[in-house]
């Protein structure tokens, strides 16, 4: 469930999406929902808990947030021998990578 990771990740979430967070405290719930929506796309292939399968990589707590974001940015440049991830990564912003990282990366 998103909330488990978010409990540990709230501080970083605020940092990651600082541009949206000028109103600070009241926006936390809305931000958790955004994390759920953005990472909801990943779930379609990597599974509800990000565990992967059938050759699709496990993305649950296998990377730090910084590594996760760097991996997504590298896909944009066709690095790491991608099949679909390059095409997908080019559709998302850096800020959205940070939101995905809150859901999938190791808690910080």
């Amino acid at each position: 469930m998103p909330s488990t990771l978010l409990r540990g990740g709230r501080k970083a979430a605020v940092t990651a999406v600082a541009g949206l967070m000028l109103a600070a405290a009241p926006a936390h719930a809305a931000d958790e929902i955004r994390v759920g929506l953005i990472s909801g796309g990943c779930v379609g292939c990597h599974g509800s808990e990000g565990g992967g399968g059938h050759g699709i990589p496990n993305i649950a707590r296998t990377m730090t947030r910084a590594e996760f974001v760097a991996t997504m940015k590298a896909f944009r440049e066709n690095k790491n021998n991608p099949t679909v991830m390059n095409r997908i990564a080019r559709g998302y912003t850096d800020e959205e990578f940070a939101l995905m990282a809150i859901r999938w990366a190791k808690p910080e």
């Binding site: 779930v43 379609g44 292939c45 990597h46 599974g47 509800s48 992967g52 399968g53 059938h54 050759g55 699709i56 099949t83 679909v84």
Partner: peptide
């Protein structure tokens, strides 16, 4: 790989 991933995609999406 894409045939293999397709099976993972179907399974992940339907299980979810």
């Amino acid at each position: 790989l894409e045939a293999y991933y397709a099976d993972g995609w179907y399974e992940a999406l339907t299980r979810h």
